[in-house]
Design a protein around this nucleic acid. Structure first.
Lengths: 131, 131
DNA sequence: ATAAAACTTAAAGTTAACTTTAAGTCAAGG
DNA sequence: CCTTGACTTAAAGTTAACTTTAAGTTTTAT
């Protein structure tokens, strides 16, 4: 059960096989074990991919995710460059959350009150008021 | 004060002039008034651009933003296609918020406990536990 | 044993969202 | 008046993140 072919991993992790080859080629996924030239993966790969997807959906680029993962793997010292990156990324994720919440409020307001224009709604939301 | 050149608008809205021309060319911004062939904008444009930026940061594509803005402008009927899109987008924004919050927790945990590997952290977060 | 399905690599193609370039026109200061 | 900076269009170029293609090998099912 624990040795997955590329197709099996792709199915379980909800990505395409070509994406897995691509991730390997750019160093985002480690070069996997081969059997007769074909890739074999462990369950570990699923976890790594789920982390990658989550980070992507949180707005991280592939380069940033690579850096993050390297840091997790190296068990970095307290004042490293990596920690600074993580701290900076934390701020960005927090900003993302705030903006997504604003957008949510805007959409709800738009649905609820049938505002005449987006900027009317926008002004209302900004003022913390409602229709 | 109310008539802005493309450069002035670009500066105030924190985008490049070329982006404004591009947005006009694809119909995301309305074709603006011209004076001797040069664009002039009202304050309205700033509001529209701030909405566009917010929506983008919330994960909307330009095509989706166009559709959203059209709906806001048309004052659409209760059961329109537009309302369905907004409802669907609301769900997506909510999912974005949840994932960004998960990512935030992961980063905080990574910083705080100096975990050995991302999936260790991942498992901990998933279990609601800590190091 | 063989046919179909899944795998391989390397390289080219795709899409979104801009940005840059080229060649020229307009506007503001000295 | 003239130069310099900001503007114009149209078209080509860029970047990230994949996806597709082509030509071939391996595995699986009958």
């Amino acid at each position: 059960m624990s040795e997955l072919t590329i197709g099996e991993l792709a199915k379980q992790a909800q990505v395409q096989s070509s994406t897995l080859r691509y991730y390997e080629s750019i160093g985002l996924m480690p070069v996997s074990k081969r059997i007769n030239g074909q890739r074999r993966y462990s369950q570990e790969a699923i976890k790594r991919l789920s982390f990658i997807k989550l980070a992507q959906q949180a707005g991280f680029s592939i380069e940033e995710i690579k850096t993050l993962l390297e840091g997790f793997e190296l068990n970095v010292p307290p004042l490293s460059q990596w920690r600074l990156l993580v701290q900076q990324k934390l701020l960005e994720v927090e900003a993302t959350i705030v903006r997504a919440q604003q957008m949510k409020a805007l959409l709800e307001e738009g649905l609820r009150c049938g505002c005449l224009s987006y900027d009317q709604c926008y002004a209302l939301i900004a003022a913390g008021d409602h229709c």
